[in-house]
């Protein structure tokens, strides 16, 4: 037996191992992504495959996204009113609600909801197929599981999330309208008029949509990769599902920061 290593060496070597591991996983994820894009032809030549995944990822997430959007919009309006009324600027409520939603809350909250509702399901499904050798069975049947199982799920997610984010924002604005106009009694013309005057379709709306598309790629990739990379055991799949939600949330928030810096710095030109 050698003498016990000093604690600092142990910590450093753990850190080193963890770093190398993370880099290796990143490399594997990149190769996985490239392979998936290459194998996407099958998915696109058979839209039925993608349609099924849009149903799983998009349609089944509709209720939670619509409800959350409505409530977020109503809360925004109530809270916004508290602040705006002090400056006598309650007509700007429409602007406040719309800008918060289309720029930030729509893409981000819809992305987080999507990751926990649809992303985790994707990971669990693929992980379970791996555990029960369904993916291996496909491979032996000369069917590429990346083309047949992974790519349709990925593209289904990529298509679903931007639509869900748009629906989230729309319902949120409607919620803001309900509270602001119907409940509090702000002038309906001022609500929509100020909103339209302040929200630019390219600078605000389009940038929000771009954000949601970026999140869609990130979350879908994380979800299918974690599923495909899961350890083929029950614990492995549940750990992978958790990782999907955590990693997606971090990725969404970090990407949101980066995108916001690039999109909304220094105003529109």
């Amino acid at each position: 037996m050698s003498a016990p290593e000093p604690i600092i060496a142990r910590v450093l070597s753990r850190l080193g191992a963890a770093t190398l591991d993370a880099i290796a996983r990143l490399g594997f994820a990149t190769r996985f992504f490239i392979a998936m894009v290459k194998q996407s032809g099958t998915a696109f030549s058979r839209p039925q495959l993608i349609a099924r995944e849009i149903y799983q990822a998009g349609v089944l997430s509709l209720i939670i996204v619509l409800m959350s959007g409505l409530f977020v919009g109503m809360v925004l309006a109530l809270q916004g009113y508290e602040t705006l009324v002090r400056f006598g600027a309650t007509e700007s409520m429409g602007v406040l609600v719309a800008l918060s939603l289309v720029r930030e809350l729509g893409p981000v909250v819809a992305g987080l909801l999507f990751a926990s509702r649809a992303g985790s399901a994707m990971t669990a499904e693929i992980g379970l197929m791996k555990t029960t050798e369904q993916l291996a069975a496909m491979e032996v049947m000369a069917v590429d599981p990346i083309a047949r199982v992974v790519a349709p799920r990925f593209w289904g997610g990529v298509i679903s999330l931007p639509l869900l984010a748009a629906l989230f924002s729309t319902l949120g604005i409607y919620g803001g309208y309900l509270v602001g106009v119907r409940l509090i009694g702000i002038d309906v013309g001022a609500f929509w008029g100020q909103m339209q005057a302040a929200v630019d379709w390219r600078y605000d709306v389009l940038n929000g949509v771009i954000k949601s598309i970026v999140f869609a790629f990130a979350v879908s990739l994380i979800a299918v990769f974690e599923g495909y990379d899961a350890k083929p055991t029950a614990e492995g799949v549940s750990a992978a599902t958790t990782r999907t939600v955590v990693t997606s949330a971090l990725a969404i928030l970090a990407l949101d920061f980066v995108l916001t810096v690039f999109m909304f710095r220094g105003g529109p030109h």
Partner: peptide
């Protein structure tokens, strides 16, 4: 809706 009614397209 977002582009036309909320935004100014």
């Amino acid at each position: 809706f977002l582009a036309l009614k909320v935004g100014n397209l």
